[in-house]
Computed example of a mutant assay.
Amino acid sequence: MVGPRRPQIVLFGSSIVQYSFSDGGWGATLADIYSRTADIILRGYAGWNSRFALKVLDQVFPKDAVLQPSLVIVYFGGNDSMPPHPSGQGPHVPLSEFTENMRKIGEHLLSLSDKTRVIFLTPPPMNERQIQVVFGDAMRGRSNELSRPYAEALMNLCKEINVKGIDLWNAIQQQDDWLNTCFTDGIHFTAKASEIVVKEILKVVREADWKPSLHWKSLPVEFPFDFGEASSLSLTDLELTRNKKLESPPFTSRL
């Protein structure tokens, strides 16, 4: 591995995670914010549901790994909540099974080490009309009515297994004109929606009573900024202020 060793923050999930490193994406923004303090590791798999995640859980997060992640941010549920396909195939996972799958994922991650922390992201709302325009019949039946119970069940599960939860379902709907500003295709996030996700994550991490803290301002900066040499620009001040706008999250209901 490339040294020195840093804390690892792993993003694990479906396309909301895989595409998060796109321009303005929430994963890319986190990587920028933590660029001198932690490594953001992407493990996103478009089209996956919680059932698929369980199949690879031990491979992605082996219990015997020398270095365990400090934080895992998990997103599944959007594909699980799609309506069942008449053929019996497709990504649909019944709500009860989804909840149990997420319980197993959370418990496995918490068992990796006594300092591994977990955040679950709920399914967000969607723009159903935009989905129909972009995808046509390929996403027929995908709806907010079907997705909302999965978000609610996940937030309840977070309380049961003592992991942090971020209620994207409600957080995104607090944004003005969210239907028209938060989605590239009715499902996946614009830079505006990604900014909401980042603000919510930073608030949870900042307020959590984790020891050590995983907030980017609390982690040690890797190597000196200037090795004591005089500079007309204070890089320390620049690092502390350039992401200031992301430290004031919108109102949301979450753990």
Rank of each mutant, 00 (worst) to 15 (best):
Arg5Gly: 08
Arg5Met: 13
Arg6Met: 06
Val10His: 08
Val10Gln: 01
Ser15Trp: 05
Ile16Arg: 00
Tyr19Met: 15
Gly25His: 08
Gly27Val: 05
Leu30Gly: 03
Ala31Glu: 15
Asp32Pro: 06
Ser35Gln: 13
Arg36Thr: 13
Ala38Cys: 05
Ala38Ser: 12
Ile41Asn: 04
Ala46Met: 09
Ala46Val: 13
Gly47Ala: 09
Phe52Ser: 14
Ala53His: 08
Pro62Leu: 10
Lys63Ala: 14
Ser70Met: 02
Ile73Glu: 02
Ile73Asn: 03
Ser81Trp: 00
Ser81Glu: 00
Met82Glu: 08
Pro83Thr: 01
Pro86Lys: 04
Ser87Tyr: 12
Gly88Ile: 08
Val93Ala: 02
Pro94Gln: 08
Leu95Trp: 00
Ser96Asp: 12
Phe98Pro: 00
Thr99Glu: 04
Glu100Gly: 07
Leu110Gly: 09
Leu110Gln: 15
Leu112Cys: 14
Ser113Thr: 10
Thr116Ala: 08
Pro123Ser: 11
Pro125Asp: 00
Asn127Glu: 06
Glu128Gln: 12
Gln130Lys: 15
Gln132Thr: 13
Ala138Gly: 03
Arg140Glu: 12
Arg142Pro: 00
Arg142Lys: 06
Ser143Ala: 05
Ser147Val: 01
Arg148Phe: 00
Glu152Ser: 01
Leu154His: 00
Leu154Phe: 01
Met155Glu: 09
Asn156Asp: 14
Asn156Met: 08
Asn162Gln: 15
Lys164Met: 11
Ile166Gln: 01
Ala171Ser: 11
Trp178Gly: 01
Thr181Ile: 10
Phe183Trp: 07
Phe183Gly: 03
Thr184Ala: 10
Thr184Trp: 05
Asp185Met: 02
Ile187Trp: 01
Ala193Val: 08
Ala193Asn: 09
Glu195Thr: 11
Glu195Asp: 12
Ile196Trp: 01
Ile201Ser: 01
Lys203Leu: 04
Glu207Tyr: 08
Ala208Trp: 05
Trp210Arg: 02
Leu214Lys: 02
Trp216His: 12
Pro220His: 06
Val221Glu: 04
Pro224Met: 12
Phe225Met: 13
Asp226Pro: 04
Glu229Ala: 14
Ser232Phe: 14
Ser232Ile: 14
Ser232Gly: 15
Asp237Ile: 06
Leu238Tyr: 13
Glu239Ile: 04
Leu240His: 11
Arg242Ala: 10
Asn243Asp: 14
Ser248Met: 10
Leu255Cys: 11
